[in-house]
Design a protein around this nucleic acid. Sequence first.
DNA 1: CATTTCAAAATCATGCACGATCCAAGATGC
DNA 2: GCATCTTGGATCGTGCATGATTTTGAAATG
Lengths: 219, 219
Amino acid sequence: MSGARKIERVVLGDQVYEAIKERILDQAHAPGEKLNVDGLARELQVSSTPIREALARLVAEGLVKAEPFIGFATAPLPDRRYYEDVYNFRGVIEPWAAAEAARRRPGPDVIQTLRGEVAAMMAGEPSREYRSHRGFTEGDDRFHRIILQAAGNQVALKSYDDLRFHLHISRLYLTREQDVGLTHQEHFRIVDALEAGDPDAASQAMRLHLEGSYERLIK
Amino acid sequence: MSGARKIERVVLGDQVYEAIKERILDQAHAPGEKLNVDGLARELQVSSTPIREALARLVAEGLVKAEPFIGFATAPLPDRRYYEDVYNFRGVIEPWAAAEAARRRPGPDVIQTLRGEVAAMMAGEPSREYRSHRGFTEGDDRFHRIILQAAGNQVALKSYDDLRFHLHISRLYLTREQDVGLTHQEHFRIVDALEAGDPDAASQAMRLHLEGSYERLIK
DNA sequence: CATTTCAAAATCATGCACGATCCAAGATGC
DNA sequence: GCATCTTGGATCGTGCATGATTTTGAAATG
């Protein structure tokens, strides 16, 4: 019984999907770059079928664009208009989610995890270094995602997940060094409000953070 | 110039995708029903590759679930918890979108289209008839979508589109006859507020409509 | 006789190689 | 210099081989 560990049934398409996603998030492919199916097949040592399946999924998620009879390419960096929409949207969802999370009184484990993320983001090397740059971005991702999770609405969580990759990439290409300190402070205030169980304060802190985040992004 | 019609390069995978989606929305496959790749290939007169590509996309959109080495199946009807989340989420997004749309003063063509949808939904046969049942559902879909569009935020629009199919199916399986009249009145109030360019009234009308809609759905 | 066990066959998902089709770019002709 | 042809390369679709899963059916057990 207890020893019955679940056998991992591995489908090649899944692994290829993860591999390509990782490559894009690793900036191994620039935005808008063409993705050669045969080339990927050779590099990943599989046939073209799993590649195409994986790319089809990535297309549906918006990370990859497909042109009939021409091929696949990584999604281009969105224009300013798109970011404006994204932040307006987040400005509606996330303050609400933060209030909801505060109302539900997140457990100490959640607070602990959030503080851990904040601390880890601060501890990152002064990043001209690529790795820490990515580490910062991923930490920010997780921070916001945890709050969406704590709000307990799976639909809202999914809508955030759909934005994550685009946000991840844009942050990767557009984040500046001096922004780190400000982000840090804003995150702190959000966690404090959550811990205090104060919905209004949490909502307000999140709103301010997103506004600041947007300002930093577009300049 | 004017005669330069765009040649539609058609990929089989796209057509298969539309065909299967249509089948699911047509209730040709019950929720949770298994989808046989070879069977679909024979029925649609194509090989299995386009089928799998289409199914992979449908999986990414949540209409179809995939289990490794077992196959594909249409997504099961969600539980009550899910609908609660959906309507809480819509209760945040759509009132905001309605206010935004009112603020932008939608043109007379948009108002006209909305009134057209409302009228068409009312004109539908007293539906024990299946067709009009579906017609009602699709009309409701389009009504809400037009408002999201009028709000001018493509991210919010996409988040709604991600919910549309699930909503469509649940409405198809769960809508009652006596609900039609109430829906109709609520839609009217929303259009009026949009036409008047009154953000608060639009937001409020949308909120009431969603609350009513939710009540009708879960009982 | 009902129920369980177990093996073998049928069914089906998955991945691969190959051929057909189509796009892009360089070469040729005027 | 412009249009047409040709070649290279890539995508798209098909058929088939392989391995996993499910079902069938018969034997064995209680």
